[in-house]
Nucleic acid binder design. Structure first.
Length: 289
RNA sequence: GGCCCGAUAGCUCAGUUGGUAGAGCAGCGGAUUGAAAAUUCGCGUGUCCUUGGUUCGAAUCCGAGUCGGGCCA
């Protein structure tokens, strides 16, 4: 009977940017009588629809869409917050007898949704500001003292990770290595129940689509989006395209250079996404023509 | 037509007094549990434009040629 999954079981549509997740999700929604749930960490913000390549109003009008543009650009989001927002939305869809179709490329966000989280404190902005001001060696030395095991296994050159580990130790007074230990124990049984697809395309084709998307973005208002949100600080500023467009607006680079930089950053991001989803063995691999 | 400068990795270029070459970017591979479109680690054989020559040995020196760029006519 586990081979007979509940018809309301959520379906995940994953893959690199520009592979065609949005249209695949719409096709699935039509076929399964589904509703679409955002699984993208940037389409969740209002005001950067063009930069984040969010579905258009026309596309959204075809089926109910959830969690698109629900946060202000100044608001903070992280993987846990996303998972906490998405879970009730999915439950609501199931309650209506529809199939939730979660579509997105933010691997970590989806991972928290599908696999749950370790009992760790959320990021603390004040503490991070303090840690960011200290040299990496200093952070490593303190981590070594508080949690030698973690200090030995953390990626020592990755300031972000070192800082996060230390942050957890300082915030809880406990050892990260113990708090984080074991969250993946149930992975196997859990994944047996999950259903999802990992969409891929050949590299040359994906790169071509990225070129087209980038051009379209820039001609359809991405620059205006960045100008409009100029004063607002937050996660959204890290979206691919934002730093590049700002450099262009500052007169540092031409529009053409800006476009090429965005393309390259997008290709690199797509590659990282492929690396991520390649490891998610529960996802069924689908090659798009 | 004459003279000068350049030609080395996909791109921009470095290469000391001759000992068969290396940076940045791009690309490729990896990591990833509350910043993740973030952050981070690893990967460099290429007709050194072609062709003659000098030399034990030429990306490097000399001659000729080809293609760029510039100056003078």
């Amino acid at each position: 009977m586990s081979d007979q999954p509940d018809r309301m079981q959520p379906i995940f549509v994953c893959g690199a940017t520009a592979v065609g997740k949005t249209s695949s999700a719409l096709a699935l929604a039509a076929e399964l009588d589904g509703e679409i749930v955002n699984g993208d960490g940037y389409q969740i913000y209002r005001g950067i629809e063009i930069i984040s390549a969010a579905p258009s109003e026309d596309e959204k009008s075809l089926f109910p869409h959830h969690l698109f543009g629900v946060l202000e650009p100044g608001q903070h989001c992280d993987a846990m917050r996303y998972a906490e927002m998405a879970a009730p939305v999915i439950a609501g869809i199931q309650g209506r007898g529809k199939v939730p179709i979660v579509v997105g490329g933010s691997g970590l966000y989806l991972k928290f949704l599908t696999h749950g989280a370790s009992p760790l404190p959320q990021g603390n902005a004040a503490m991070r500001a303090q840690l960011d001001a200290r040299p990496l060696d200093d952070l490593l030395a303190e981590l070594e003292k508080l949690d030698p095991k973690e200090a030995a296994q953390v990626a020592r050159q990755n300031r972000r990770y070192v800082s996060r580990s230390l942050e957890i130790c300082l915030l809880t007074g406990e050892k990260v290595s113990e708090l984080r230990d074991g969250w993946e124990r149930k992975t196997k049984e859990l994944e047996a129940k999950l259903k999802g697809f990992w969409l891929i395309r050949t590299r040359p084709d994906l790169h071509h689509r990225i070129e087209q998307r980038t051009r379209h973005m820039l001609s359809e208002g991405a620059i205006e989006e960045v100008e409009r949100l100029q004063e607002i600080h937050g996660n959204w500023e890290k979206a691919i395209g934002v730093p590049e467009i700002r450099r262009h607006l500052a007169g540092e680079i031409s529009l053409q250079e800006c476009e090429e930089l965005i393309r390259a950053a997008t290709r690199q991001y797509a590659k990282r996404q492929e690396t991520w989803f390649r490891r998610e063995h529960w996802l069924q691999r689908v090659e798009l023509a």
